[in-house]
Design a protein around this nucleic acid. Structure first.
Length: 765
DNA sequence: AGGTTAGTAATTTTT
DNA sequence: TTACTAACCT
């Protein structure tokens, strides 16, 4: 690290000249292009401290925006440490967090009242489903999830229904998308709720409709700092641009090479366009990397250079690393071998003194962790899976939260629907529809509709009685809430509602865990002043701080790994179709490929000392064997920085593999099916079950992607389901197998005709 | 109202 | 393979 003159204040010592430049350029628009591992967070915090220490302004006139609560927390902590005192009055938080503040101050402008609620994704989907039903949209053709994501993309682009025309929305949902979007927004208003996207949008609407409010914020925020700028969407960009207009002291920090959230509306264009958006902007490039070895950096730089739309940075290091081993690239036979390889390397590195908590396996998709979990479990290496189902997304937590939301806000319609028949109260869908009708016709909340229903005879006796009981319960709990601490209240509500009992009586293996989680929820509540504060926290901060003391290996997706670093990183599953992900590329073509490549870049740059990249020649996907081609990203790693080894019989894809391995003989007696090797989808080989190791062999490939390849197909007799054989089906009776397509079988039944049935439902006869 | 069965689909997800 | 859901049955 560079030495800086000792005349600098202590908080600035140890910065390199470029970092110093980024810190000292306090005024005017500044773009800091911060490569991976270049000390970004340090620069960011020092910059905030510097502005304050120079007396340019006070905390009250600063705005610092991050994407995650974790990043916000970290920034605050580091700043406080640097300043030696608590940071108060600064608007430091996530976009959503800060927007809630803005909207809560002027909610009437967007048709809400100040106690509006924020829907979680579960509620959003249910709401969209209701709207789709209303419009008679076939939920198979247009799944609620898909419609919701389209609406969200509009919100990301700051487009309200009023901004869209029929032409814009095309024939989505039979051309009714615009009406659906409108209805969805209407329903949200009726519920006095909004979704995450709305938070930014509503803030923008407030700025637009109340110029004096905007002016006040513009005046207030003399210095603005934005982290992860490459991840901002259009709405967030507009929000920032408005706020920065008067003082123009905006510093955006980001890395275009690490933009991996375009599928969620992030616009790399924002960072690429910064200099046009803010004329006279200064750009600082942080390129000196303090994290990784030169081989790792070389591999990363070589790979990312295949992308075209980038601002261009080259990471370098002056580290003389004793660990400077080349990036290890391994071709393995199948997924199990890959997992075994990773496990063995972990054990061997641990013996060499590496800590398990400094090792990570980063995968493209969540399900890929499974194979590694199994292996690590087997060899007794402790691990944790990061991400996955988060605490506040668990069913039991959502249910419990819905009860609490009802106590705090009885008119919370989504919460009402969630718990009205959980636990079972003989209040099914038919009864719920009746309440819906009352609610809609009279324009009242579900809660009010429920009260009306119990005082009339629109419901069946059973349903009416149990609903009445529930309503009385809520009345009582609201009374209790006046006098009782909220965590105690939560316990009472869960017990008296029968919710706790429901899980106690449940015999499934998960139920003890669920009860544990409910206890944990009540514990977590104690840290908050009141119920409302807790509920808001949960809707905005979905994570729960985790302990980092245990020495465990981490397994997570590449997305989840952004911003983290480990001594040792394993990047398995580098196969065409898996990574780069086929689906992603089908949807967005070359743009997707570049984003996948950035994801690979993010993965590589997480590694400090050792990096292992691997691919398997065969994989079992949904119980079907499928052979695969090494990822093109493997080829794109410059050979100077890698050491490639492929297991015998496993072929690489690059020139370094040509003729390197001898084609193995196929086992005699097994059918050989030549086929083209184009996309992994087409190059499936099916083995009906597990395959013995002596059959190990794939066909040879002499070129990269085009050469034909042979694979063995073993006709498995184990299940007796073979073309021409007679089989029986519980419902359709006897028949003869006509063809087999994976786990689906075409059968000509004697009574029922030709049916496509699942293999598991038929037996040999 | 609630449980069973068959069909279908299967990235990434900071808030 | 599993997970989810819509239709079907009791």
């Amino acid at each position: 690290m560079e030495t800086t003159p000792s005349s600098l204040p202590p908080y600035m010592t140890g910065l390199n000249p470029v970092q110093l430049e980024a810190v000292e350029a306090t005024d005017g628009p500044v773009l800091v292009l911060a490569g991976a591992g270049t000390g970004k967070t340090r620069v960011l915090t020092t910059r905030l401290a510097h502005i304050l220490m120079q007396g340019k302004t006070s905390t009250h006139n600063m705005l610092a925006v991050t994407f995650t609560n974790k990043a916000a927390r970290e920034m605050r902590e580091r700043l406080e440490k640097m300043l030696g005192q608590a940071v108060e009055g600064m608007w430091l938080g996530t976009f959503h967090n800060l927007c809630v503040r803005i909207v809560r101050r002027n909610p009437e402008v967007v048709g809400l009242t100040s106690n509006f609620t924020i829907l979680d994704s579960d509620d959003q989907i249910r709401l969209v489903k209701q709207v789709l039903e209303l419009h008679n949209i076939d939920p198979k053709r247009w799944p609620a999830k898909m419609i919701l994501s389209v609406i969200q993309r509009y919100k990301d682009k700051a487009q309200t229904p009023a901004d869209l025309s029929a032409d814009d929305v095309g024939d989505f949902a039979n051309g009714k998308l615009l009406a659906i979007y409108e209805d969805y927004q209407q329903r949200l208003r009726t519920l006095n709720s909004c979704d995450f996207g709305d938070l930014i949008l509503h803030a923008l609407t407030i700025f637009k409709k109340q110029p004096e409010v905007l002016a006040q914020y513009q005046e207030k925020f003399q210095y603005i700092l934005v982290d992860e700028y490459q991840d901002t969407n259009v709405a967030q960009y507009l929000w920032l641009r408005l706020l920065a207009q008067s003082h123009r002291n905006i510093c955006c920090v980001g890395d275009d090479d690490q933009s991996i959230y375009s599928w969620r509306g992030a616009e790399v264009g924002n960072i690429l366009r910064f200099e046009e958006d803010f004329p006279g902007a200064k750009t600082v490039r942080l390129e000196q990397n303090y994290r990784s070895t030169s081989n790792i950096l070389g591999a990363a730089s070589g790979l990312i250079s295949h992308n075209s739309s980038r601002l261009g940075k080259t990471l370098w290091t002056d580290q003389e690393a004793p660990y400077d081993q080349k990036v290890q690239v391994r071709g393995l036979w199948d997924g199990q071998e890959e997992a075994r390889f990773v496990g063995e390397e972990m054990e061997s590195l641990q013996r060499k003194g590496f800590n398990l908590k400094e090792m990570a396996v980063l995968v493209r998709a969540g399900f890929q962790t499974r194979e590694f979990e199994e292996r690590l479990l087997k060899i007794g290496v402790p691990y944790k899976v990061i991400g996955g189902a988060r605490f506040y997304e668990r069913m039991e937590i959502r249910d419990a939260m819905a009860y609490l939301r009802m106590v705090a806000q009885p008119h919370d319609g989504m919460a009402f629907e969630r718990i009205v028949n959980t636990p079972k109260r003989s209040f099914g869908n038919a009864s719920l529809q009746i309440l819906h009708n009352i609610s809609r016709e009279q324009g009242i909340s579900m809660f009010d509709a429920a009260w009306q229903a119990v005082q009339s005879d629109v419901l069946g006796n059973k349903a009416r009685n149990s609903l009445h009981n529930l309503l009385n319960d809520f009345a009582r709990w609201q009374q209790i809430a006046q006098t009782t601490p909220h965590s105690e209240l939560a316990q009472i509500v869960l017990d008296e509602s029968g919710y706790t009992a429901m899980w106690q009586n449940d015999k499934s293996p998960e139920s003890p865990g669920r009860l544990e989680n409910l206890k944990e929820l009540i514990n977590a509540m104690e840290e908050f002043e009141n119920l409302a504060g807790f509920l808001e926290h949960v809707s905005l901060v979905m994570d729960l701080a985790e302990n980092e003391t245990d020495d465990m290996v981490s397994l997570m997706t590449l997305h989840a790994a952004k911003g983290l670093e480990f001594d040792v990183v394993f990047l398995p599953g580098w196969e065409e179709g898996v990574f780069p992900n086929q689906r992603s590329m089908d949807e967005s073509g070359n743009a997707a490929l570049e984003e996948e490549r950035r994801l690979a870049y993010v993965g590589i740059t997480r590694a400090k000392k050792r990096l292992f990249i691997s691919y398997a020649a065969n994989r079992r996907i949904y119980n079907q064997w499928q052979s695969s081609v090494p990822s093109r990203f493997v080829d794109e790693l410059p050979s100077d920085f890698t050491e490639v080894q492929a297991e015998t019989g496993v072929y690489g894809s690059g020139p370094q593999f040509q003729n390197k391995f001898q084609k193995k003989n196929y086992d005699k007696g097994h059918a050989q099916v030549p086929r083209n090797r184009q996309s992994p989808k087409q190059s499936q080989s099916r083995f009906g079950g597990t395959m013995s190791k002596k059959f190990k062999s794939t066909g040879a490939s002499s070129g990269a992607y085009s050469a034909p390849k042979k694979t063995i197909t073993i006709q498995k007799k184990k299940d007796g389901i073979v073309v021409g054989n007679r089989v029986s089906h519980e419902k359709f009776g006897f028949g003869v197998v006509r063809s087999i397509d994976g786990n689906k079988v075409h059968v000509i039944f004697e009574g029922a005709g030709i049916k496509k049935v699942l293999k598991s439902f038929i037996k040999p006869a």
